[in-house]
Amino acid sequence: MNNTNKTNLADNSRRKFIRGFGLLVGCSTAATLLTGNAIAVAMSYAPNADSTLTNGKVFTRAQLLQLEKICSIVIPATDTLGAAEVDTHGFIDNQLYHCHSKKVQHKAIAMLTLLNVEASNHFSRPFIELTSNQQYQLLNDIDQGKAAFNKQQRSEFKFLKQLICFGYYTSEVGATQELRYDPVPGGFKGSIPYKETDASWATSTLFS
């Protein structure tokens, strides 16, 4: 399958990187580098299938379930996994807690509350209990700033979408299966062929 090939590409590149090192500087230095990375890996957020079973660091359990649903609507599963399947909601909860101010955390919570309020106003149920079509309609309205939603709310939803995109496209699935990731390109080529079905590069620098 296509996705597997892409994973192998990234793996092969990593192996190439380490092997290149071994030749250049001896295997012990190459191994040291791996040890360094192991520390980073241990500190990175590990996607967790059970993240909606308890309260998060910023969101309540109910809010995490709601966010999971929103993730699955914004970036659904196609021939690759979607944002909900890779626990983007759990990642966002952790990321908001560590890397964003209280003010931003409250804004994210307020966005979920707003969507619940509007769900109740229109359909007399909380967001999570709406049909898929109703959920999609509500998110589509706020995404375009129409119906019950104003410009300000539209831009706040765009911020939530940014968090979802960041979480998904910097995840292993997002970067290596949905998009293309090459840790060691080996050099820069100014022109290669591209067709519409090709994926774009996941990163342009160290800073995504």
Binding site: A10, R14, F17, L33, G36, N37, I39, A40, V41, M43, S44, Y45, Q95, H98, C99, F166, G167, T170, S171, E172, A175, Y181, P183, V184, A202, T203, L206, F207, S208
Partner: peptide
């Protein structure tokens, strides 16, 4: 160079 060659998903807070 402890941050080198670490893909985003392996970085603390994705960088």
């Amino acid at each position: 160079y402890i941050g080198e060659n670490t893909p985003m998903w392996q970085q603390e807070h994705r960088g």
